[in-house]
Computed example of a mutant assay.
Amino acid sequence: MKEFIVAVVAAVFGLAGTVVGAALSARAAKNGAVLSAQATLQQVRDQATVDQAHWLRQQRLQAYEGFLAAWDECLRLIDSVGLPGDSEASGTNPLKEAAGRMTERARRIDILGPTEVSRAAEELADSIRRDVSIATKLKELTEAKLPSATEHITNGTAPAMAAATEALEEANRQMQELVAEANESGQLLHENPRTTEMFERFERAQEIADAAIARAHRDGDGFSAFLEQATVIVNELQRNQEARACTRERFTTAARHTLASANPPTS
C-alpha cells in the first residue's frame, strides 16, 4: 500500500512538472512572439517615419521650387514689362497675375511648413503685391496729373514764352535801328517822334514777358507738385524692393536648411 501511494505521489509530481514546464515554454514562446511583433511594429513605424520624412521633403522641394519659379516670373516681368505690368491692348495685368500665382504657392508652403520658411514666403509674396499696388498708384497719378501738367506747359507756357521772346527781340531790333538812325542824322533820340512809340512797344513786350513768366511759374508749380507726389511713391517702391532682398535671403537660407535636415521639422 505504501509503495502504491509513493508511486501515485511521484506520478502526480511528474505530471505537475510536465504541466509547469509546458506552461513555462508556452509563456516563453508568447513573450518571444510579443517581442518579435513589437520589433516588427517598430520597424514598420521607423520605415513609415522615414517614408513620411522623404515624402514631406519631396513635397516641400516641389513647393519651394514652384514658389521660386513664380518669384522669378515676377522679376522677369518687372524687368521686361515694367511696373505695374499693364497691357492695355489685352486688358490684363501680367505682373498682378504672376503675383497671384506666387501667393497661391506661398499658401501651399504655409501648409507644408516649416514656419520660418512659410513666413518668409508670405512676406515675399506680400512684397510683390505691394510692388503692384504702389506702381499702380504711380501709374494712376501719372495718368491723372501728367497729361494736364504737360499740356499746360506745351500749349500754354511754351507758346507764351516764345511770343514774349519774339516781342522783346523785335522791340530791341527796332530800338537798335532807331538809335542807328539818330546817330547817322545827328538827331537826339528823344527828338525822334518814333521814340515814344518805341518805348511803348518795349513796355508791351515787357508785359507779355511778365505774363509768360507768371504763367510759367503757375504751370511749373503744378508740374512740381506732380513730381513731388511721384517721388514719394517711387521712394516707397524702392524701399519695398530693398527690404525684400533680405527676405529673399532669409527664405533661401531657411529652405536650404529644411531640405538638408535628416529629420525636417513639420511646423
Rank of each mutant, 00 (worst) to 15 (best):
T49L: 15
M175V: 05
A158Q: 09
A22Y: 08
K96Y: 13
T142P: 01
A125L: 09
T142L: 05
S261C: 10
Q174D: 13
A53Y: 01
L138S: 14
V234I: 12
A212I: 09
L61T: 08
V232P: 00
A162H: 08
L146S: 09
F4P: 01
N93G: 09
A230N: 08
P84W: 03
A37N: 13
R107P: 00
M102L: 15
K139R: 14
L124H: 06
R194N: 12
T115E: 14
A216Q: 09
G85C: 07
D51P: 00
R173Q: 14
A230F: 04
N93I: 06
T195K: 00
S185I: 03
L168S: 05
L138P: 01
E242R: 06
A39Y: 03
A245V: 15
L41V: 05
A29P: 00
M198G: 04
A209K: 05
A243C: 02
S267G: 06
A216F: 04
L68A: 08
Q238C: 01
K139A: 13
C74G: 06
A98H: 02
A98W: 03
Y64L: 07
Q238V: 15
T40Y: 01
R239E: 15
T40D: 11
P94G: 07
W55D: 13
T247D: 13
D79P: 00
E3S: 11
F13C: 13
A211W: 00
A120V: 09
A37S: 14
A225H: 08
N263S: 12
A7P: 00
S25D: 06
L168Y: 00
T103C: 02
T231V: 01
L95P: 02
G14Y: 04
R57N: 13
A225G: 04
H152D: 10
A212M: 07
T266I: 12
R244C: 09
D86I: 04
L141S: 06
V132I: 14
N240Q: 15
R105T: 07
A33P: 00
I134N: 03
W55T: 12
M102H: 05
A28L: 10
D86S: 05
L178D: 10
C246N: 11
D79A: 10
A125Q: 08
R119M: 11
I111T: 14
T18H: 01
A214T: 15
K145R: 15
K139M: 08
E170A: 14
A125M: 10
Q229N: 06
T142K: 07
K30R: 12
T253I: 12
I208K: 07
S185G: 05
A48Q: 14
F251C: 04
